[in-house]
Design a protein around this nucleic acid. Structure first.
Length: 286
DNA sequence: GATCCGTGGCC
DNA sequence: TGGCCAAGGAT
């Protein structure tokens, strides 16, 4: 047991947010939906959409019974709408291969569409109480600072980093430890303007002890947005989402003026399965 | 490993 | 004002 455990767990007991996908009443499916939605997306924006999804589709079978386009539509403006398609596909696979129950094993979860290392570990841990290393951006940042003494972790997970997290994982109640570290990273040990004065392990923190040296790794690229294909795809899909049925090409033309890019992006949306041709110059959600 | 994939709030 | 960031995954 590291000396980090007690203060972090005590802090979590006092400061944890009461989120609907936490606690005894949350089903594994609720946890799974939340993990898909939380990928690169803040909690505050996930909350209302998650509630509506669980009300409308309380089980994987309920979601799988509907066209994937309904999932894309109900995804709303959460972003990265391919996640909605993958969640629908994962629900279908759960019905077909797992009797409609969210799998508990990491390997079974990892085999589902839209689930990588983090999400498989998170669902196995938080929905089923298994013991896995849960390495998300929050945990990585907390450990980078408290243990390694650097402001931010490397661009991708290193072997040493995973080993540090593995050694810190307690034998008993690993889920509470992981969610506590994540919560600490989300609320106190934030990427910018960390609230060190409120941190339960400030006196143990290697980064603080070193005088808060600034990040000195490779430059972190900020994604461009204005004029990109992602913005164009977002505009086009929003037209489909906000329409009852199939829409004519002219409505899509009005959503993005640059023709070559518009055509390329529409083709990529069709290729991704987010849009389907529905007739002459007509398109719809799948 | 680098790149692509949405969206909106914040300091 | 605009760079920065938010519980990643697939290719």
């Amino acid at each position: 047991m590291s000396e980090l455990h007690e203060p972090v767990l005590r802090w979590y007991d006092e400061h944890a947010r009461d989120l609907p996908w936490r606690g005894e009443q949350a089903s594994p499916w609720s946890v799974m939906v939340s993990e898909f939605m939380l990928q690169q997306t803040p909690v505050s924006r996930v909350l209302p959409v998650h509630a509506e999804w669980l009300r409308r589709w309380p089980t994987p079978a309920a979601l799988a019974a509907e066209p994937s386009g309904e999932a894309v539509r109900a995804w709303g403006r959460l972003g990265y709408p391919r996640r909605a398609l993958r969640l629908h596909a994962a629900a279908t696979s759960i019905v077909e291969r797992h009797g409609g129950e969210v799998p508990a094993s990491y390997d079974d979860l990892l085999a589902l569409p839209g689930i990588g290392d983090y999400t498989a570990a998170a669902i196995a841990t938080f929905a089923h109480g298994r013991r896995h290393v849960v390495l998300d951006t929050n945990v990585r940042r907390v450990l980078a600072r408290a243990v390694q003494g650097v402001e931010l972790p490397a661009p991708s997970v290193t072997k040493a980093e995973r080993e540090v997290a593995r050694e810190l994982l307690p034998e008993h109640d690993a889920p509470t430890w992981s969610v506590a570290v994540m919560e600490l990273g989300a609320l106190v040990c934030t990427a910018s303007n960390p609230r060190c004065a409120a941190c339960p392990v400030r006196d143990l923190c290697a980064w603080r002890a070193a005088g808060h040296p600034p990040y000195d790794g490779p430059p972190r690229k900020v994604q461009a947005w204005a004029g990109t294909d992602r913005q164009c795809r977002g505009r086009l899909l929003a037209v489909l989402r906000d329409s009852e049925g199939p829409v004519h090409r002219s409505l899509l033309d009005a959503a993005w003026s640059e023709e070559a890019q518009r055509i390329r992006c529409l083709a990529s949306l069709v290729d991704d399965g987010l849009v389907v041709p529905a007739g002459p110059d007509t398109y719809a959600l799948p």
